[in-house]
């Protein structure tokens, strides 16, 4: 699911795409679903960067 979201924002380009993906997930996902993602390094790089941001922002 996260990869699919990232793919749809990818056109915005690296950093911006990751920000948009993170914001989208923050708006629509329950925080426990975000926490339950566990190791996200295997995801598409944009999605992985988005989760890294979400973790920093808490």
């Amino acid at each position: 699911m996260a990869n699919q979201i990232a793919a749809n924002f990818a056109i915005a380009g690296g950093e911006a795409a990751a920000r948009a993906t993170a914001e989208h997930i923050r708006q629509f996902w329950n925080s426990r679903m975000i926490a339950a993602m566990g190791d996200t390094s295997g995801l598409d790089p944009i999605a992985a960067a988005a989760f890294a941001q979400l973790r920093i922002d808490g």
């Binding site: 996902w29 329950n30 426990r32 679903m33």
Partner: peptide, 18 residues
């Protein structure tokens, strides 16, 4: 303040017991 679960999420969460 946290968004809740959507229908498919509820069904997934039901299968893992939460």
């Amino acid at each position: 303040p946290d968004p809740g679960l959507r229908i498919p999420d509820m069904l997934d969460a039901a299968r893992d017991g939460s």
